[in-house]
Write a protein that binds this DNA or RNA. Structure first.
Lengths: 244, 244
DNA sequence: CGATGTGAAGACTTTCACAGCA
DNA sequence: TGCTGTGAAAGTCTTCACATCG
């Protein structure tokens, strides 16, 4: 926010990535903008305003502009943003301008869903292996990938320079999966198991718990219901405001 | 924050839920505390301090205390929190003290993974149906639930008073799924499809995009790599600090 | 004129630090 | 004494509003 002196020189043709630290909240939105922009490209839309993009993403237009400005972005006043260039910039910022090798631990339903998930390969993630300890699951082809025994993990990680691992095991196996991933050399982990896994300093873990998401929803749903009930109880007037 | 006068009366036996609005950030953490606390109960741990819970959840202890205090919580100074009571309180706050009926639209890999996901039934979510439009998938039993045709959705939603719907379809089918859910009477939607779905005012949607999570990870991974590269380039000293 | 880029204000969240109670 | 509960400070994120520029 203060280091704004050498902007001009950077804009022209910066071979550097990540010129400044982008806020987490923005990083979490960039993939959404990216996806929407790619859809626009497919519809042959060449230019887009912050208002339009904001409407598509269901956010505030000022937020879009600020988010894009963190990348040292390149809109044209009075016109908007060049969709293709924006796509290029966001991809670069997110590191999607080269392929990422990914391994998945756990060949259950979730592991299968993930390995067959189109969104991954589309965005430059290449699934180099699906692993399990259950012999019944080994060698079965899952989403185009043969399931291997977990013992083969280190070998694959080293050979294909995998840096991202996905944990799709039951909770009970997650810590072991994490340990093995770390020992094999993976440095980032996406954890779908409903536990907190411990990793050494320097390894980053992101957790997505499907049931947590449902619980957040039911909290809001419950509030909605009690608000409605209160409205009925109090009486028909507007003294309590039942909004989303 | 100011309405703290009638606390005592409430604490004893409050039949009221949600005495005050809980910040979103806190709501997102309560399910995690809940899960950890349940694990503690299973290990026969009856009491826990904010420090201990914070360590388990990998967050700051003050945050834990503040989060719990929003529920008008009930710790004992010098001692800590009663685990069982905390579990009771969080469940109640999240609306997990009664069962929620849920329907899943989309019987692909993800729909199957979700319908078989143990975490749901454990936490009081009852999956009342899995729906698809693909005739090949209809009538197949998936995670203990028979897959039905999407046309049967309104009937099931009405009959089982379903208020939460999960979209596990491909992107192209998601808007239709959302429309049908809304028309059937569902008021909250958890959307796993990688699109923004439009819904009428008053319906709440929460989106979880698996590939967005990967993209956030690769952003951080990429920063890590370039930071390391810069370190090497500059030279071996500590002028640039490469942390996680 | 119309849309970007951005200071500044405001809202929300986290963290500190300590009073207060068991 | 030890740990909770919480004002207040610090930090982060969102939104406003408008100067600025194509």
């Amino acid at each position: 926010m203060k280091a704004r002196t050498s902007d001009l020189s950077c804009k022209a043709m910066s071979p550097h990535r990540s010129r400044r630290r982008i806020p987490d909240a923005t990083v979490a939105r960039l993939p959404i903008y990216l996806q929407l922009l790619i859809e626009q490209l497919e519809n042959e839309v060449a230019n887009i305003s912050s208002d339009e993009l904001a409407a598509l993403a269901a956010v505030n237009a000022a937020k879009v502009r600020k988010d894009l400005s963190y990348m040292g972005s390149y809109g044209t006043r009075g016109v908007g943003y060049d969709v293709e260039y924006l796509v290029y910039q966001i991809r670069r910022e997110l590191g999607l301008d080269h392929e990422w090798s990914v391994v998945i631990v756990g060949a259950g339903h979730l592991g299968q869903a993930l390995s067959g998930y189109g969104g991954f390969s589309e965005r430059g993630y290449s699934i180099e292996g699906v692993f399990d300890i259950d012999d019944k699951k080994i060698d079965v082809a899952v989403g185009g990938v043969r399931v291997r025994h977990l013992d083969e993990l280190p070998q694959v990680v080293a050979q294909r320079s995998v840096s991202i691992g996905v944990i799709a095991t039951p909770a009970s196996a997650a810590q072991d999966a994490a340990d093995r991933l770390v020992k094999s050399g993976v440095t980032s982990i996406l954890n779908f198991a409903p536990v907190v896994v411990n990793v050494p300093f320097g390894i980053s873990v992101r957790r997505v718990d499907l049931s947590v998401e449902l619980q957040i929803i039911s909290y809001h749903e419950q509030r909605r219901l009690t608000a409605a009930a209160q409205l009925r109880a109090v009486n028909g007037d507007g003294s309590i405001n039942a909004t989303a």
